[in-house]
C-alpha cells in the first residue's frame, strides 16, 4: 500500500483535487465498494466532533475497512500523560491509516513525520480541515458541472473561518471570481488577498449582501460567532446583516447553490431550507463520498 498523508489542502496538486472529485462521483454511483476488506483504519478523535467522525467512519465502513479508535481522548492513555508522539507511534502499529482530529494546531503534520501509516487530518484547531474543502469542491463540481470560472460569494466570518481560507486556496487553481462579504472586524486576512493579487485573481470586498449575489454561482455562508467580536454591542448590531433570507434570492442565477459547512446558528433563515437554491444538507451527503475518495486515493487502491 502506498503511504501518502493529507494534512493541508495545499498538499494536493490541481490534478489531484480534480481526481478526488472524480472519485467522489464514482463512489456516489458505487456507495458500497469493499476495496479495503480486511484493512484496519484508526479513527482518533482527540477532540470530539460527532459529525466529522461519523462521516469518516461511514466512508471507512462503506469501503469494507474495520474501524478502531476513540471519539474523545478522556479515557485513553493520552489523559494519563502519555505524549502525543508515543500514542501515535503505538497506534500506527495497529492499522493501515490514521484519521485524526486534534485541538492542537499542527498535531497531524507532526504525526505524519514519524507515523508508519498515512495520516488524514480531520481538523486541527483553527488550522486545516482538508476533507471539508474537498467536499465543498465536489459539491461545486457536482452542482455547476465545472470548477473553472466559478463566481463565488463568501459571507460571514472570513477572518477566522478556516473553511473559507482552504476553499479559497483550492479554487485558486480554477480561475475563480470572489466576492467577500463580512464586517470589517472579520474580513479576509491580508495574506489571502495578497495571495489572490499575486495570482491575478479578482475579488470584491463588501460589507453586506447586495445585488452582487445575482452574479454568483455559489454563495458560501459561514457562522459568525459572538466570541469573535470584541464588542458585544457590535455583534448585536451586525449579526442580522449576514443572515440569508428568501427575499435576497429572488433574482439569483437559476443554477446558484448555497453552501454552508454546518452547523449553522441562524445565519441562514429556516425558510431558505425549502428554497431550491439551498444545498447545505446535500453537501453533507457528498462528504461521505468525498471521504471514500480521499481514503482510497491515499491508500492507492483507487488511483
Amino acid at each position: 500500500m502506498s503511504k501518502r498523508s493529507l494534512i493541508s489542502i495545499t498538499d494536493l496538486t490541481k490534478e489531484e483535487i480534480l481526481r478526488i472529485a472524480e472519485l467522489a462521483a464514482y463512489f456516489e454511483e458505487h456507495p458500497y465498494e469493499p476495496l479495503l476488506q480486511g484493512r484496519v483504519i484508526a479513527s482518533l478523535f482527540f477532540e470530539p466532533s460527532t459529525r466529522t467522525r461519523l462521516s469518516f467512519e461511514s466512508a471507512m465502513n462503506r469501503l469494507g475497512a474495520r474501524v478502531i479508535g476513540f471519539s474523545d481522548a478522556t479515557n485513553t492513555s493520552v489523559s494519563k500523560g502519555e505524549t502525543f508522539h508515543d500514542t501515535i507511534q503505538v497506534i500506527s502499529n495497529y492499522c493501515d491509516m490514521i484519521v485524526m482530529r486534534h485541538s492542537l494546531e499542527g498535531a497531524p503534520r507532526y504525526a505524519s513525520e514519524f507515523s508508519k501509516v498515512p495520516i488524514v487530518n480531520a481538523g486541527d484547531g483553527a488550522n486545516q480541515h482538508p476533507s471539508q474543502t474537498l467536499l465543498d469542491i465536489y459539491s461545486i463540481k457536482k452542482t455547476q458541472g465545472r470548477l473553472d470560472n466559478i463566481n463565488i460569494m463568501m459571507v460571514g466570518d472570513l477572518k477566522y473561518g478556516r473553511t473559507v481560507h482552504s476553499l479559497l486556496q483550492a479554487l485558486s487553481h480554477f480561475n475563480p471570481t470572489f466576492t467577500f462579504v463580512s464586517p470589517e472586524e472579520l474580513q479576509m486576512p491580508r495574506e489571502y488577498t495578497m495571495f489572490l493579487d499575486q495570482l491575478g485573481i479578482s475579488y470584491t470586498v463588501k460589507r453586506e449582501i447586495d445585488e452582487a449575489i445575482n452574479e454568483a454561482d455559489i454563495v458560501y455562508m459561514t457562522r459568525v460567532q459572538k466570541e469573535r467580536y470584541s464588542d458585544p454591542m457590535e455583534y448585536e448590531r451586525m449579526k442580522n446583516v449576514y443572515v440569508l433570507k428568501n427575499s435576497m434570492l429572488e433574482n439569483v442565477k437559476p443554477t446558484m447553490k448555497i453552501l454552508h459547512p454546518l452547523p449553522r446558528v441562524g445565519e441562514i433563515e429556516q425558510e431558505v431550507d425549502a428554497n431550491p437554491h439551498a444545498y447545505y444538507f446535500n453537501q453533507t451527503e457528498n462528504g461521505v463520498y468525498t471521504r471514500m475518495a480521499i481514503i482510497s486515493y491515499l491508500l492507492g487502491v483507487k488511483k
Partner: peptide, 12 residues
C-alpha cells in the same frame, strides 16, 4: 507565537 500550536504543548 501561536499558543494553540502543538510545539507549545508537546516536546516537539
Amino acid at each position: 507565537a501561536n499558543p494553540a500550536c502543538i510545539t507549545n504543548h508537546q516536546p516537539v
